[in-house]
Amino acid sequence: MRPVKEEVQNPAFAYIAGRIDKMLVPALLYFLAHKPAHGYELIQKVNGSGFSEIEADPATIYRNLRRMEEDGLVISQWETEHTGPARRAYQLSPEGYRALDYCVQLITDKVARMQAFLEQYQREVKGSE
């Protein structure tokens, strides 16, 4: 993995770090890394995945997508190539992929700390009973 911490410049990264526990932004970035999607579909995927700590309502998801767009993490455009219904589709920008890498780094660090806690508990509390 790239040395993400040295690359942190976009203020969005600080926003992500402050809310990493909720896991909403990592989940959105993750699903968009698979393929572009519209908000309706993302709401279903995020809430169906169990990745996010919260069951996100549409207002929360769309506000986050708008913020991610303003921060340059996603790009949106209306799907107008066919007749019938058109929806705004979101896709990850290169900055969005970097943000996803950053999330993975934060989660990895967090998991390592929690794992260390569990091991120490097993060894020093449960093991000494």
């Binding site: 549409p58 769309y62 209306w78 107008t80 007749t83 019938g84 219904p85 058109a86 929806r87 705004r88």
Partner: peptide, 22 residues
């Protein structure tokens, strides 16, 4: 309701519509 474009208007009167809010 976007369904109205399909049910009552498409494709004779409207061939594309934008679903823009919830």
């Amino acid at each position: 309701d976007p369904m109205l474009f399909e049910e009552l208007l498409g494709p004779e009167y409207v061939d594309r519509y934008f679903i823009f809010a919830n």
